[in-house]
C-alpha cells in the first residue's frame, strides 16, 4: 500500500534551509507525522507540541486529510532576554492522502502530550476479509 504525503512549500523550505545554521534542530516539514495501519483503521500521528486543541482544525475531503493549526506564542515577561530561540513554527498545514476509502462519519481525533492522533476507520469495502471456500 502506498501513502502519498504532500510536502508544502518545498521552495520556501530550501531557501530557509540555505539561510539557517547547520545545527538547527527545527524540523523543516511540520508537523512531523507517522502513519499507522491495521485491519480496521489508518491512524495519522502528528507532533504538535505547544499547540492547544482549539487551535487545530482537521478536514477530510476526497480521501485527503488536512491538518492545520497555529502554535500561539507563550507568555514571556516584558523584560526577558531571549538566549535561544529554536521554536519557530507558528502556522502550519499538511495534507495526507489516505490510500483507502474511509468511513468519514466515524473519524475521531485526540490530543495528548503534544501529539495529535487521528483515527480514520476503513470503509466496509476497504476492510480485509476472509473468503470462505464453498
Amino acid at each position: 500500500m502506498m501513502v502519498r504525503v504532500a510536502y508544502p512549500n518545498i521552495f520556501d523550505e530550501l531557501i530557509e534551509e540555505f539561510f539557517t545554521p547547520a545545527l538547527d534542530v527545527t524540523p523543516t516539514v511540520y508537523p512531523a507525522i507517522d502513519i499507522l495501519e491495521n485491519d480496521a483503521a489508518t491512524v495519522v500521528v502528528a507532533e504538535v507540541p505547544g499547540v492547544k486543541k482549539e487551535d487545530v482544525s482537521l478536514k477530510y475531503e476526497n480521501n485527503v486529510l488536512t491538518i492545520s493549526g497555529e502554535r500561539k506564542p507563550y507568555e514571556i515577561p516584558q523584560d526577558a532576554r531571549i538566549l535561544l530561540n529554536e521554536m519557530r513554527v507558528r502556522k502550519f498545514t499538511r495534507s495526507i492522502e489516505i490510500p483507502h476509502d474511509v468511513d468519514a462519519e466515524k473519524i475521531t481525533a485526540e490530543m495528548n502530550n503534544g501529539v495529535l492522533r487521528v483515527t480514520l476507520p476503513k470503509a466496509e469495502v476497504a476492510r480485509t476479509r476472509t473468503i470462505e471456500i464453498k
Binding site: V25, P27, I76, P77, A80, R81, I82, L83, L84, E86
Partner: peptide, 14 residues
C-alpha cells in the same frame, strides 16, 4: 533526538 529548545532570561531566573 535533541529536543527543540527556547531559553530566556528574566531579572530573577532562566
Amino acid at each position: 533526538v535533541p529536543p527543540v529548545t527556547d531559553i530566556y532570561e528574566t531579572a530573577d531566573s532562566f
